[in-house]
Design a protein around this nucleic acid. Structure first.
Lengths: 123, 123
DNA sequence: CACCACCGTTTACGTATGTAAGCGGACTCA
DNA sequence: TGAGTCCGCTTACATACGTAAACGGTGGTG
């Protein structure tokens, strides 16, 4: 089953640092999301069911650790978008942003560098 | 409200050609999705409520036309993904695909061309 | 004019999601 | 040892979504 939007917020916290307790997660995410404790706990339980995180006992509480790697999640999501909207290819997506004038100087510089590296690798 | 996955399939049909009747939409999408007629009708009604399409009478039936431009939808979806996963910037996304070896020759060639064009524009 | 076919609208229903309150067991402190 | 506290687990509830059946009006046909 897919990781939902709200669940992914919890995952992001765990990807930044793990293991973490529910309380720590709430502390990090609560202010921005305005969530109650019960909300975080529910999300953690759903993530457990989905095997996206594991829990290990630490005294009276649990510490949660991601089982799903961020890298993998990012790949799935990105591929999904690309397939749905850009015929599965990267260039049209970049072209789209370019047309929308959404490429920053920094983006352009980094893309140049990236292509150069790919070029160097070639030989 | 957001356009759902199933709804976007109907939108894609209408973006390819519009206006179209429910029947025509079903004909184009039914085989691939294995949907019944009622399903397409529900999706169209939800899209109407969301103001993503409009309907105009054509004799005893309606013809549906997108109100939401594909360009705009694509922008929203892409920006959403970028913001959620790549800190809102394009280069890291491309880098991700590069690391995953998901850039095709064609992608690379097109990216090169794109950058060159941006460069030319500059002067 | 009565009936059927066609097409949109209404209703349905199970699951997912966002958001959380309530329950119950274990640990602690008086 | 009885009461309070902390924490996970269970339950709740409204909305969204996927999927579709049932209903109802309108125009054509015999």
């Amino acid at each position: 089953m897919a990781i939902s939007e709200a669940e992914s917020v919890v995952m992001e916290v765990l990807w930044r640092a793990a293991p973490r307790s529910a309380e720590e997660i709430l502390a990090e995410v609560g202010p921005a999301q305005d969530w109650q404790e019960g909300t975080v706990k529910s999300l953690l339980n759903r993530l457990l069911k989905k095997k996206a995180v594991k829990a290990e006992r630490d005294g009276r509480r649990y510490l949660y650790t991601p089982l799903l790697a961020r890298e993998k999640y990012v790949s799935q999501e990105s591929k999904g978008l690309l397939d749905r909207l850009f015929d599965g290819r990267v260039a049209p997506l970049v072209a789209h942003f370019s047309e929308q004038r959404k490429l920053t100087k920094k983006d352009i510089a980094e893309l140049r560098k990236l292509l150069k590296e790919l070029d160097d690798e070639q030989h």
